[in-house]
Design a protein around this nucleic acid. Sequence first.
RNA 1: UACCCCGUAGUGUAAUGGUAACACUAGGGAUUUUGAUUCCCUCAUUCUAGGUUCGAAUCCUAGCGGGGUAGCCA
Length: 587
Amino acid sequence: MSDAPTGNEKSAPRNFIQQIIDADRAAGKNGGRVHTRFPPEPNGYLHIGHAKSICLNFGLAKEYGGKFNLRFDDTNPAKEEQEYVDSIVDDVNWLIAGFGETEGFRVQGSENSSPAPRTPNAEPSLLNPEPFFASDYFDQLYAWATQLIKGGKAYVCDLTAEQMREYRGTLTAPGKDSPNRNRTIAENLELFAQMRDGKFADGSRTLRAKIDMASPNVNMRDPVLYRIKRAHHHRTGDKWCIYPSYDYTHGQSDSIEGITHSICTLEFENHRPLYDWFCRELGIHHPQQIEFARLNLTYAVMSKRKLLQLVQEKHVAGWDDPRMLTIRGLRRRGYTPEAMRAFCERIGVAKFNSTIDMAWLEDAIREDLNERAPRGMGVLRPLKVVLANLKEGETIELDAPNHPQQPEMGSRKIPLTREIFIEQEDFMEDAPKKFFRLKPAGEVRLRCAGIIKCDEVVKDAAGKVTELRCTFDPDHSRKVKGTIHWVSAPLALTAEVRLYDHLFGVENPDNAPEGKTFLDNLNPNSLEVVTDAKLEPSLKDASAGTSFQFERSGYFFVDPLDSKPGRPVFNRTATLRDSWTKESGRD
RNA sequence: UACCCCGUAGUGUAAUGGUAACACUAGGGAUUUUGAUUCCCUCAUUCUAGGUUCGAAUCCUAGCGGGGUAGCCA
């Protein structure tokens, strides 16, 4: 069943792409079909900007009861690797699970497992489970190039890269024709075949479209269709020494797959006339290219080059560092695909070049995890408290709900003992009026336990508070202003907890002063490792890859890589909203 | 300096010729055994100037501002 709008219900806001598709369907274009795709180059890991594109394309296909392809635009063997193909498939599958998709795409074998020939558009379901590869179309692309040559629309050019740059002209000055522009069709055919057969050196010749060297759009000044490049391709191996360019490959790949709406980012706007030119000259199915603004976020950088630099120069631990806005990083941070989808829907899609506030991302994961994460208690910076009226060695079993708003999530036992830990910041000796936590002679509620009164403050020689002596009152009925979390000292689980903050300390890291780079804007406090956090004992069995809310603290994810059975390691996904820190920060 | 695209609360996105809506942030308040959650309230001369129209965020013109484009990268 499709979620396509019926027109009866009050229509939700439609973005400009949905409006285009609505109009196309109303006009009967493509027989009402909607077929989108996500076309990454396998030369790096996916990041949150790609997530926006995936959610958009996949969401559209799902909404309209259409189809969605994953296709690798692998036309530059020098940069592409199988490792990236595998990680991209994995990340895409993870993401579309947020749409309720359980099947996903199959991980592809490398070049050794020669794929069976197939018809790209044959699968009846929402997604074609085998990812597509532009490299699978190399033979067809070659044939089409020959066709263009025969039609006098393409020629072999002998200009070097530098010469070609000179001939291209500038943004304001027209280019001039290549001396080879008027070769005969027969000669072009022969030379192109020789290019393919490895008769020429790398870079010595190209196949170019014959369009218009004086076009105000530089992309139309006889763009390169094929270049000679002897490189091992991750799929086609050494079969080819000429490779098609992006412009020559992308639209035709869309066409072969029966794509109806080819959605890409704004920088390809100037390429659209070329996209259209190829489909028209070749007389093939003509998808519509639509451009939207890529995602920008505050406190983040998004370019592949910069992300790569962060990894290579070890400013982060790797592509999956939880501070990275790569899909892998977000996954390890504890983000859920549902939250990612909600985020992508909320930010919308338009042509305006915008920057989304990072708070929106945090809000999306909080909203999701608030619903589903079971609660627990964890003390990050422990302060010992002795409950003087409790017996030594006595353990009181208390019942704690796993979710205050959802009783169906059940409850767990937490032990109370004479010695407990509370958070250092939950005690203040000289507390301001609005400080609702523990202070000398003051009272505070221990979550799910009872009320304690602070009788004595113990300090070391340096005057640092080392211990509190309190009286415990199990009576729950009294009203006290503050409630704090706590953990049994002797029974606590000591665990490593990693506290993450924005990777960059400023809203726009790229806005670096003269002589500085975005790296100078790194936040030195983006990672704090707490090696001896004290957690309630039930967390000992927390399974890897699950999320918890440590009450009053934040959402934490059991790290899938570093956790061992019985020894979980927690990554903080997000803090809870905290109006006290704001309040106390004021003068 | 050429061409293309874009300008609506602090940030985003709606309203598609009928008098600016929703979300996040921020600031107030209520509830609360998480200072969480939840719930209320507050925050805009739609970049500017002309024009078309009974009526313009929407259409036209000019200006201003922002972004993109000169790889044999994608």
